[in-house]
Design a protein around this nucleic acid. Sequence first.
DNA 1: CGCCGTCAAGAGCAGTGCTCTCGGTATGGC
DNA 2: GCCATACCGAGAGCACTGCTCTTGACGGCG
Lengths: 220, 220
Amino acid sequence: MTAASIRARLRAEMTDEIKAAARRHLATDGANLSLRAVARELGMASSAVYRYFASRDELLTALIIDAYDALGAAAEAAAEQGSWLAVCHAVRDWALANPHEWALIYGSPVPGYQAPSDTVGPAIRVILALGRVVQEAAAAGRVEIGRPVGGRLGAELAGVAERAAPGVPPQLVARCMAGWIHCCGAVSAELFGQLNNTIDERREFFEFQMRGAMSWIGIR
Amino acid sequence: MTAASIRARLRAEMTDEIKAAARRHLATDGANLSLRAVARELGMASSAVYRYFASRDELLTALIIDAYDALGAAAEAAAEQGSWLAVCHAVRDWALANPHEWALIYGSPVPGYQAPSDTVGPAIRVILALGRVVQEAAAAGRVEIGRPVGGRLGAELAGVAERAAPGVPPQLVARCMAGWIHCCGAVSAELFGQLNNTIDERREFFEFQMRGAMSWIGIR
DNA sequence: CGCCGTCAAGAGCAGTGCTCTCGGTATGGC
DNA sequence: GCCATACCGAGAGCACTGCTCTTGACGGCG
């Protein structure tokens, strides 16, 4: 172990500690994260944090990437079961356990913040996991393929299908994306208070919706 | 016209002017609205704004209520056509025209902000409009009623149906709510950048999704 | 006319993101 | 082993924020 690597390790540890403190603050204060408060909690000057993150936005970006990765990992683990519904529930469970991080990645984007390209990789893990589940189901003959989509949208979907899941009919890709969007919407609706004073049986209602999405997609 | 009413009118005009300026700032700077910047634009001291809104949150609440009302009005106007799809498109069109206000009401809630009860009235106008459309369609025999929902969710849905749309089967109410949630999710996904680099034919894809929701709900 | 409610303005407080500078420490090349 | 160098932490400082308090002025009403 060379000296340089010691330094690098210390730096990585400090970076992780800052992120952990930031996550804690995120859980209590919400999205308007105060860099100074994080520094205070760690007992260091606010300016020292800038040695590790060039700006508050960069810290947020790191948290966003971590959140995407954590959600993606949870979804991929659930996808092992080969069940669309299991993935949806895994997503919802993760969101309920980490509501502020869900808001960070699927809520309104912070103004002026432009997602760097580093985020797209972790961001698509969930939809890819869902896609694999459906692909397997389709290979096993458990999916009913719907009518093709025409027009320019159809052509565009064909391109998307070719890039993301070669061999899968574009209309199935489209329905998967729609199902995933419905899943996101259902989780956000529950988390952001749209169901307050209306639905208490949150989990059942979520499953009801996702079963509906499945039936429309054509998963048997 | 008594003096008191002159005062009241001036006050109302000033309030409207502040809200208009705030909306302008919202459109450019996003959700982190600066009360001082609004005051600067109006050429008055920041403290003067507090004569009209007790706090920044109160100003935001006023904007939220206005946004709900504007969206609700757009939805209700579209509902006159009796078409579920038209209402969805009206919602999306409004959101595209007022993206920051959409984010304000359907994005991540600002931390520490508790929606006052004044907001629930305007908030439910859209879903009520959708409900009326489906109710009319059902009365005309254009809706296929699905299987009933059992369990505690079924009982809860029965209560919701009784309060919001007496006579409508609970499972239809549930599917309407799910469709509305899917609509919100689709609009948010488009607005918040989830479709970037994937789908360019936004309108077609949105309609594809909403037609899917309709078919699952059972609207013919 | 005088009173009082309403309004706007300014100063001020605590907090924020971020920059710059300054000292101290440890790293890596000689 | 020595020293330049890179790195790191702390502090001061700037411009900004939300919000409060005080002060002064205007104008309708008794």
